Amino acid sequence: MSENVQRSRLRLLAGAGLLLAAPQLHAAPARTVLRVGDGRGMMRAMLEGAGVLDGLPYTLEWADFPAAAPLLEALSANSIDLGGTGDAPLLFAVAAGARIRAVRATQTDPSSIAIIARGDSPLTDAASLRGKRIAVTRGSIGHYLVVAALRHAGIALNEVTLVYLLPADGKAAFSSSAVDAWSIWNPYLLIALTRENAKVVTHGGNGLWPGLGYLAAHDKAIQTKADAIADFLRRSQRAQDWALQNGDAYAAMQSRLTGLPVDVLKQMHEATRPRGVPIDERVIAGQQQIADTYYAAGVIKQQIDVRPSFDTRFSIVD
C-alpha cells in the first residue's frame, strides 16, 4: 500500500472519529400553541389594553365567535383549547356530552341579561309573556333567563314560542317586530335600551340568574397544555383588575377592536363590573341551579351533577 493511500485513510478515519465524538444535535421542542375562543373580541381587547400579553412563553391564537353556543361547539370539537362562556351555555354543552370543564369563574351583575320588548309594547312583566314570540339564542344565558322567568311566573314553556336566533338575527327580528320580545345580554342589551327605545320586561337580577361566567377548557388541553392555561388565566386576572381601574381606556380599546360605541362599552363595563371569583361551593351551587331549572322545564332530559364539570386546580384569584 502506498504512503499516499495510507495517509488518505488516516485522514478519513480521523474525520469519522470527530463526527462520532461531536455532540448530537436535536430539534428544539415545538412551541405550545394555545387556541383561545373569544366573543366579539372582548377578552382580547381587555388583555391587549392591559398590556399583559408581553413575553408569552407560548403562541396565542385567537378565534372569534358571535355567541357562546358556536364557541362551545368549537371547544367541544377540540378546535380551540379555551374559551369564555356563560353558565347556561356551559351546562348545555356538558349535557350534550362535551369533554370540557370550567377552569375560571367570573361574577357579573345579574341584571346584565334581560328580556326586552319595544317601548310601545304592552308587555310589562314575565307573566305578560304568555302566548308571545320570544327571540333567544339556543343554549345561551338568554335562553336560561326565559326558562327561569316563565317558571317563576307559572307559565309552561309550551305557552310561548321560542324563536332560536343568534344575536345579530335576534336584533333584526326584534327591530322588525317579527318577535314580541328578545332575551339578550350586553352589549346588545344596552344598545337596544339606549338606541332602539326598548324596555326591560324582566332581568336576571330578579333572583333568576346567578350571574356567573366561565373560562372553560377542553380536557385534552387541560392534560397537555396545563402550564399555558395557568399562565393565561393569571394574565386574564391581571387584565380584569386593570379594566376595573381603567374604564375609559378599556372602553376605547374595545371600541377599536369591535367597532361598538365607546359610550355603550363604558356603560356596560360600569354596570356589570365583572370580577374573578374562586370556584367554590357557592359557584358550584349556582351552576347546579341552572341544571336543575333546565331539567325541571324539560329543556334537558337528564339530571346532571355539575361538580365534575369544574377543575379547581386553575382557580386563581389574586
Rank of each mutant, 00 (worst) to 15 (best):
A216Q: 01
A226H: 03
G154E: 12
D248Q: 15
L233W: 02
L257K: 10
V264P: 01
R256K: 14
Q245R: 12
A192K: 00
N186Q: 15
A181R: 02
A172S: 11
W185D: 07
A217C: 03
T258K: 06
L212Y: 07
K199I: 08
I184H: 05
K171H: 09
L233S: 00
L157Y: 09
I191T: 13
G170I: 06
D231H: 11
V200W: 03
Q240E: 06
Q237D: 08
A230M: 15
L257T: 11
A178S: 13
T161A: 09
L260N: 12
V163P: 03
H152C: 00
G247S: 13
V179I: 07
T161Y: 07
A149K: 02
S183F: 08
P187W: 03
W209E: 11
D241Q: 14
L260Q: 14
A156E: 14
G154T: 10
F174V: 06
D219C: 04
D263H: 13
P187H: 05
L215Y: 13
L166Q: 14
G170S: 08
T202R: 04
G211Q: 02
S175L: 15
K220I: 06
Q245N: 10
Q245W: 02
Q223T: 09
L166E: 15
L233G: 01
Y214V: 01
Q237T: 00
A173P: 03
D231I: 08
T194K: 14
L244F: 08
L150N: 01
Q267A: 15
G259K: 09
L189N: 03
G247L: 15
F174A: 06
D219I: 04
